[in-house]
């Protein structure tokens, strides 16, 4: 198996989760519960990252102040149009999350801005499964819109238990059947696309 997969957000990297990640061939994960900015446990690089959700631009601006000194990767879940636009053009932000709560703010204008500032779209799978089907179909339409503009869509597990961990063999197939995109693309999105983000932030894998 290729030992090159990266999960851009894991909520609780306990021993069981780490063992399973190692078994699946993950090389690096991002979590907010890491001690140092970059550390290595059992051959897996653990990078300190943050997933922020914010309702307005002012609070987001305050929370982002000096955030890069502590965290390597910063992901934002915007809960308003202003916050989404601010996150799209801020250089400290590494990705914008699309969840059940913020599908309405991810419009073509946001896609254009994310394309301009080369920000990827983060898709937490744990949230996706909990959404009602009408919201999932809205997420599907958003993904088609973002992919038509050539913006990377990166699935993250946001896992806290072993059941939530993304299996790199089945997840690309599941996503390609659910959203109708190429299986190869989803494989790229859990291996090379997150690697580019880590390398851009100075993480050596």
């Amino acid at each position: 198996m290729i030992n090159d997969f990266i999960d851009l957000f894991v909520e609780d990297p306990n021993d069981k989760v780490l063992r399973l990640l190692k078994h699946f061939g993950y090389r690096a994960i991002v979590t907010d519960k890491a001690r140092d900015k970059i550390q290595r446990v059992n051959g897996i690089v653990i990078v300190k990252g943050l997933l922020l959700s914010s309702k307005d631009e002012k609070s987001l601006r305050a929370r982002l102040k000096g955030v890069k000194e502590e965290y390597s990767i910063v992901l934002i879940e915007p809960l308003s149009t202003a916050a989404a636009r601010f996150a799209a053009h801020d250089s400290r932000v590494d990705g914008i999350a699309l969840t059940c709560r913020n599908t309405l703010y991810m419009d073509p204008g946001q896609a254009g801005m994310m394309k301009q500032y080369s920000k990827p779209l983060i898709l937490p799978l744990k949230d996706l499964i909990k959404c009602p089907y009408r919201i999932v179909s809205r997420i599907f339409r958003r993904i088609i819109l973002f992919r038509s503009k050539d913006i990377n869509v990166i699935p993250v597990s946001r896992s806290s238990e072993t059941g939530d961990v993304m299996n790199p063999t089945t997840t690309p197939l599941f996503l390609s059947y659910l959203f109708g995109l190429n299986k190869g693309y989803w494989l790229y999105s859990i291996s090379n696309a997150p690697r580019e983000i880590l390398v851009k932030n100075g993480v050596k894998i």
Binding site: Y133, R134, V136, S137, R138, F140, R141, Y177, L178, F179
Partner: peptide
């Protein structure tokens, strides 16, 4: 199936 329901989004 649920997959088609999501992609078709009948309303």
């Amino acid at each position: 199936g649920i997959n088609s329901l999501i992609q078709a989004d009948p309303y």
